[in-house]
């Protein structure tokens, strides 16, 4: 994937997703949970973008809004040239097979009254035109690919373990040969060997079919393995978006640094690197801080961080950081425009 100008399959600009909060006996609309608050990024065709960050920071909401499982509050999502946010229901239905999601909560997405073969085969029936025999062959192929024994085809979801159910969801998402897959914690419930198997599978499919992934995970070692670039989110916004190796070698944003330092070393005999323990609680997304969202816990915050929101900007080639520590324009007097849309995007348009 080293073309001079890679095709951007997914382009997200200033995406916002607010959930209204109603309080009191009268259920008055008193505010919003700003689950996603101005997020912009691109994913090139055939690329894997990792999305990491604290629980509740808005990762799943980004994933769901991208596929328009939510109606976003603002911003645009262009996938393969079409703005998802404004597609008609019929156009959206036709586009659905090309974009799929593997859900965080496998149980909730599986119909308890259908057998495994029916669940995996359902999208094939709905959108495909295979004969019953070809369909069964395809179902078996998919089961092999995700490591489910063919003898399980007639079983119901409750007869499977948590990890087995997650694999059913993956097989189902793969059934229609999508172009773009949002993987929301696709491997959290799996044991390491099966995780490896699924990740290898996702990589193989990417190589052979040119698939594009948004890979949401809190497993930083797995993200390091699979992602080309990684976006680190904090409280509804992107703190840093960098190429994988650069991020892991030298995280720039203080939050990214803290996050990477907290990983458990899977070997009690190895000395760990200094862990940065963050003080304080994550603020509520219904009442984010006035300044930088991370300012209340940032070990390196200074006065400006408490009054102004930093925008994501390219501070080194390919590295985008939303942090005043890296703001070289401070003296240039551009501080008076905190919401400048130009600075809200990731770098220059390609």
């Amino acid at each position: 994937m080293l073309d001079a100008a890679p095709k951007m399959l997914v382009q997200v600009r200033d995406l916002k997703m607010y959930f209204p909060v109603y309080t009191g006996i009268l259920r008055r609309h008193t505010g919003d949970v700003k689950a996603v608050d101005g997020v912009s990024f691109d994913i090139a065709q055939g690329e894997t973008l990792g999305l990491v960050g604290e629980s509740g920071c808005g990762k799943s909401t980004v994933g769901r809004s991208l596929l328009r499982l939510y109606e976003p509050t603002g911003g645009s999502v262009v996938i393969d040239g079409e703005d998802i946010a404004t597609l008609s229901p019929e156009a959206l239905r036709r586009k659905r097979p090309t974009m799929q999601m593997v859900f965080q909560d496998p149980q909730a997405s599986l119909n308890p009254r259908m057998t495994l073969a029916e669940i995996i085969g359902e999208p094939l029936v709905e959108h495909g035109n295979l004969s019953a025999q070809d369909r069964l062959r395809r179902i078996y192929d998919l089961m092999d690919q995700v490591g489910l024994n063919r003898r399980f085809a007639g079983r119901f979801p409750h007869e499977f373990s948590g990890g087995q159910r997650q694999r059913i969801g993956i097989a189902r998402a793969l059934a229609l040969n999508p172009k773009f897959i949002v993987c929301d914690e696709p491997i959290a419930a799996l044991d390491v060997s099966i995780q490896a198997q699924v990740v290898n599978l996702l990589e193989d499919l990417q190589d052979s079919l040119g698939l594009t992934y948004l890979f949401i995970s809190h497993d930083l070692s797995m993200v390091r393995h699979i992602a080309d670039r990684v976006a680190v989110m904090y409280l509804g916004r992107i703190a840093e978006l960098s190429p994988r190796d650069a991020l892991y070698d030298r995280p720039l944003h203080p939050y990214a640094e803290a996050l990477l330092s907290a990983v458990n070393e899977p070997d009690p005999l190895l000395a760990r690197r200094e862990r940065i323990i963050l003080q304080g609680d994550v603020p509520s997304p219904a009442r984010p801080p006035k300044g930088c969202n991370f300012s209340t816990r940032c070990p390196r915050a200074f006065a400006r961080c408490h009054t102004e929101k930093p925008q994501l900007s390219e501070v080194e080639p390919g590295r985008h950081v939303a942090c005043f520590l890296y703001d070289t324009t401070a003296q240039a007097g551009s501080t008076g425009r905190p919401e400048d849309p130009e600075h809200n995007q990731q770098g220059e348009p390609k």
Partner: peptide
């Protein structure tokens, strides 16, 4: 032993391909 070998690492060299335990679990 096989299980301990399958963990991808956060530090160290990044493997081109992750280790898996070949074969199917018992039914």
């Amino acid at each position: 032993r096989a299980l301990l070998k399958t963990i991808p690492s956060l530090h160290g060299k990044r493997a081109a391909r992750l280790q898996v335990i070949e074969g199917q679990p018992p039914i």
